[in-house]
Simulated scan of single mutants.
Amino acid sequence: MNIIGRLTRDAVISTTSQDKEVVIFSVAINDSYRNKQGERIEQTVYFDCSYWISTKVASLLTKGTLVELIGRISPRAWVGNDGIPKAGLNFHTSQIKLHGGGTKSERLQAAVQTENDTIVRSEKADDFPF
């Protein structure tokens, strides 16, 4: 699935209990539609995102940046400190593309491409045609 939105805060790097690093960030997507009465309804959907492939991209993912993400969505539910049930959407990102051009976009693509080249090479080494 693809989503395009703006980062709501700067990305942070988090370390799991198994010493794996993940880039955590949040994206907002604005949408609008007309209801049966013809009124324009605007809404914003927020996604909590994770990117496990490379932590190099974290410094380029800053608040307000327009990004296109490819990945999968998973729902999550929890009970808040106030005892009220809450729900959210997690987006497990497999590819990131910055929109707007400039050197920031080029640096992200270079960082991601370096990681992707390593992954593609290792997959091709085990991919025999027979």
Rank of each mutant, 00 (worst) to 15 (best):
I3E: 00
I3S: 02
I4N: 07
G5T: 02
R6I: 07
R6A: 04
R6M: 05
T8E: 02
T8Q: 06
T8R: 11
R9K: 13
V12A: 13
T15F: 09
T16Y: 13
S17L: 10
Q18C: 12
D19H: 05
K20D: 07
E21D: 04
E21N: 03
V22Q: 00
V23P: 04
I24L: 14
I24M: 13
I24R: 15
F25H: 01
S26G: 05
A28H: 05
I29E: 15
N30E: 06
D31V: 08
D31K: 12
S32Q: 12
S32M: 09
Y33K: 02
Y33D: 05
R34F: 08
N35K: 13
N35R: 09
K36G: 15
K36V: 10
Q37L: 08
G38M: 07
E39L: 05
R40E: 13
R40I: 13
I41D: 00
I41C: 08
I41F: 05
I41Y: 07
E42A: 10
Q43D: 15
Q43V: 15
V45F: 07
F47W: 06
F47E: 06
F47Y: 12
D48G: 11
C49H: 01
C49E: 03
S50E: 09
S50C: 04
S50I: 04
Y51D: 00
Y51E: 06
I53A: 10
T55A: 05
K56D: 11
K56P: 02
L60Q: 00
L60G: 03
L61I: 08
L61A: 04
T62R: 07
K63C: 04
K63P: 03
K63Q: 12
K63I: 01
G64R: 00
G64H: 08
G64L: 08
T65H: 03
T65G: 03
T65C: 06
L66P: 01
L66K: 13
L66N: 02
L66C: 01
V67Q: 00
V67W: 02
V67M: 09
I70G: 07
R72T: 14
R72W: 10
P75M: 11
P75A: 11
R76D: 15
A77P: 06
A77H: 09
W78E: 03
V79N: 13
V79I: 14
G80R: 14
G83N: 03
I84Y: 05
I84F: 02
P85S: 08
A87I: 11
G88E: 10
S94K: 14
Q95K: 11
L98R: 09
H99N: 03
H99D: 08
G100S: 10
G101N: 12
T103W: 11
S105L: 00
S105W: 02
S105V: 00
S105G: 06
E106I: 07
E106T: 07
L108Y: 06
Q109F: 10
A110G: 01
A110C: 06
V112W: 01
Q113W: 03
Q113P: 01
T114N: 07
T114K: 15
E115A: 15
N116T: 15
D117C: 08
D117P: 00
T118G: 13
I119A: 02
R121M: 11
R121K: 13
S122H: 10
E123Y: 14
E123D: 06
A125Y: 06
A125V: 15
D126K: 15
D126W: 04
D127C: 09
F128T: 10
F128I: 04
F128C: 12
P129I: 12
F130P: 01
F130L: 08
